[in-house]
Design a binder for these strands. Structure first.
Lengths: 310, 310
DNA sequence: CTGTTAGCGCTTTCAG
DNA sequence: CTGAAAGCGCTAACAG
């Protein structure tokens, strides 16, 4: 492990100068800086993060708080970008409420990270305050916006000539999102907004409800990938063809929808993870300590479950 | 941030004694240790890992190398256990070959972690050497063993009276696993071992192949969850009932099989992650620096895709 | 059993 | 622009 003074000796300067040069601090002649940088690289010098941190310098570590490792792609993207930038990733999984409460109660990050990345974690009042107390920048990657996803899905279906579109929402959501649909010129029938559990079974039950109505929609948008699958399975079992008789779009469930071939709205998670890191590190370097949230951009992936209205 | 000397002062002893007491080192009277521990807790003292590490003590950090964040459950379990034990998790995602090569080339872990946890990463010769060079214990959590999974699935089906069982394997695997089946008293027909891509489409094609044969098996075991889903979908479309006509067991694909209700072999990932951490930390405390691999234990989850042979 | 004395490898004044 | 010196908070010999 070559240390900073090793480099200093080899470059014929003092350790202080090496420190300044490598960090890009002002007050070092360009010639010296170039030389030091070159020598350091040649010697494969890597800074001792502990020492830097202890001495009050940068800590070269970012805390990543994930609500769940399901959002794995964003994590993978962020990790890659951080590693490349020479930062450690301190991972914290805030899955259940207990783990989350415990984390914010202990706040084990004091003086240990240069920034915080939030993955699908929306802090409440107190949590935000705890994070702010760290005095480091916080960037949070939010989940994809449902309204936006819905807009994308509806536009796709309308483009295919659909007018009769049912909307499947998870139980608990009390909005209807009618405005989003009517804004695109759709006539919304109340019986075509159905709530169900976000499961395959839930989706299957939705079909029963839909079949009871006087008219079957030509397309259904499901906010849950699993429910979308349920709709798909039950429709096929009932002898309806997808997409010939009914088109299906899911607003979520990348893996599942991809496996089965359902048209779906997806997020660019990996790239977004990388972007978020760039943003965060820029804030770190600027010495800021504010908080931003960056919504996940989404796009539609057309597969085999949507077609022109027959 | 209260420091060790703060605690020392409050407890009326020297910093060295606090250090010894808190780490459980021998050479401290029980009375002193109790008192110091009590004072430390009261003052909510948390050790400065940087300083400890720099001074040559413990680093309170474990590197977790994951081949992919898909194996998220094990990661979540491990993270929880480590956090509880007061250890940081330094996450490295070794997804693609490039990232992996880059990691082992740089080996950014020197003097920075107390141990390494490998998640579905099987190091080759050189990689193992690089890890050994760290001088810390390495525990690796392997994927579930296919042979074992197959045994579980076969036993379940045999218990239901099945004798005619087809086996769907991923392309590239050149084994037939006949012994595993024959060992359980099954007569294996060569046309009932089918290779396909681990996708829904692959599974659908398998059914075509199977239907061409002179006799349809009463059950199929698929090593891929997605292929199992393909088999399921195609059979239903062809008018066969599952499980009335054909039973299906998947050897993988927790999420997918759970969503659709397929009987499957699953691993106890979360618990195993916690176990692995216990194991690793025990080695850390014992000052060892060896390497072990712990295969993921598996069990069968019976759902709706298997039934008694008709 | 306990305290004292040195550093660990950096960053940061403070001088030159 | 550069160097010398002090110190971050711990652990590790040494003495008592």
């Amino acid at each position: 492990m070559t240390s900073m003074s090793d480099v200093a000796r080899a470059a014929g300067v003092s350790a202080a100068t090496v420190s300044r040069a490598l960090r890009g601090e002002p007050g070092v002649s360009e010639a010296t800086r170039r030389n030091v940088t070159e020598v350091a690289k040649r010697m494969r010098y890597a800074i001792a993060r502990d020492a830097s941190s202890l001495a009050g310098g940068r800590r070269y570590a970012i805390a990543v708080l994930a609500s769940d490792v399901g959002r794995g792609e964003v994590l993978a993207g962020a990790e890659g970008a951080l590693r490349q930038a020479g930062y450690d990733v301190l991972l914290y999984v805030l899955g259940d409420a207990a783990a989350r409460a415990g984390f914010f109660e202990e706040m084990p990050l004091g003086r240990r990270v240069d920034g915080v990345l939030l993955l699908s974690v929306t802090p409440d009042e107190g949590e935000a305050q705890a994070l702010a107390g760290l005095g480091v920048p916080v960037v949070s990657v939010a989940d994809g916006d449902l309204t936006e996803a819905l807009r994308l899905a509806a536009a796709h279906l309308i483009g295919l000539g659909h007018h009769d579109i049912a909307l499947v929402l998870p139980e608990g959501v009390d909005e209807t999102y009618d405005e989003v649909l009517t804004a695109q010129g759709l006539a919304v029938r109340p019986e075509w907004t159905v709530w169900c559990s976000p499961t395959v079974i839930g989706g299957e039950q939705v079909v029963d409800v839909l079949l009871d109505a006087e008219r079957l929609p030509t397309a259904v948008i499901s906010s849950s990938g699993e429910a979308a699958l349920g709709v798909f399975l039950r429709l096929r079992r009932d002898g309806r063809e997808v997409p010939a008789d009914v088109s299906i779009v899911s607003l979520e469930g990348k893996e599942l929808t991809r496996a089965v071939g359902l048209t779906a709205v997806e997020g660019a998670e990996r790239e977004h993870g990388e972007r978020a890191v760039e943003d965060l590190l820029a804030r770190v370097r600027a010495g800021r300590s504010d908080a931003v949230v960056r919504p996940l951009p989404q796009h539609l992936v057309v597969r085999d479950s949507t077609g022109a209205v027959g």
